[in-house]
Simulated scan of single mutants.
Amino acid sequence: MKRILYLLEIILGIALFLLAAYVFTSEQTKTISGNCIGFGSVLIVFGIGNLVYSFVLSKEKESALLKQKMIEVNDERNVAIKEKSGAKVNQIMTYLLSAFVIGLSLFGADKAIIICAASLILIKGLLYVLMVNRYARVL
């Protein structure tokens, strides 16, 4: 069943690629043609990769790998590492966004752009408060 889906993925990618080459040829549809080529190429490559992978891996080996992966994903040490690294990335991104907003204002960017960038910091702070409250109730 999966192999049929992979074949359909390849066929859809080829169809998008051909659609871009023969249907969307005018100057007005250049953007659509580029998108079709891009998405079609991605679908073809992923479809071929998944199809080859399905032939190489047996069902028993695939289920064993999936089981091992689930154990590693749910391992407490790995979960703690992911949570700590996510918190550190969040902290660094706050500083980077703040520097970005200050840089935009120093370079004389439009006020609307500065407000949009600054609103990202406010949204991040709001999401932080909401998540802390949610996890305080759940855990």
Score class of each variant (00 low, 15 high):
138 V>Q: 08
47 G>D: 03
44 I>T: 01
109 A>C: 09
72 E>S: 15
31 T>W: 07
119 S>A: 14
100 F>N: 08
67 K>H: 11
62 E>N: 09
98 S>F: 15
123 I>R: 05
25 T>R: 08
34 G>Q: 05
3 R>T: 09
86 G>D: 14
99 A>K: 01
60 E>A: 15
30 K>H: 08
61 K>N: 14
50 N>V: 01
41 S>T: 15
63 S>Q: 10
26 S>P: 02
46 F>R: 06
92 I>E: 05
115 I>S: 11
61 K>I: 09
82 K>R: 14
91 Q>V: 02
79 V>T: 12
42 V>H: 01
120 L>N: 08
123 I>P: 05
65 L>I: 07
136 A>W: 06
58 S>M: 02
72 E>C: 06
102 I>E: 05
38 G>D: 03
139 L>N: 14
27 E>V: 01
40 G>Q: 02
106 L>T: 07
93 M>G: 07
119 S>I: 00
3 R>N: 13
97 L>P: 01
79 V>Q: 13
1 M>N: 09
101 V>A: 13
135 Y>G: 02
77 R>G: 07
91 Q>G: 03
17 F>G: 04
30 K>D: 09
68 Q>L: 12
55 F>A: 01
13 G>S: 13
66 L>K: 13
77 R>F: 09
37 I>E: 00
107 F>T: 08
12 L>P: 00
9 E>W: 06
131 M>T: 11
10 I>G: 06
97 L>Q: 04
82 K>V: 09
85 S>V: 15
136 A>E: 10
83 E>A: 08
1 M>C: 07
12 L>G: 03
47 G>A: 06
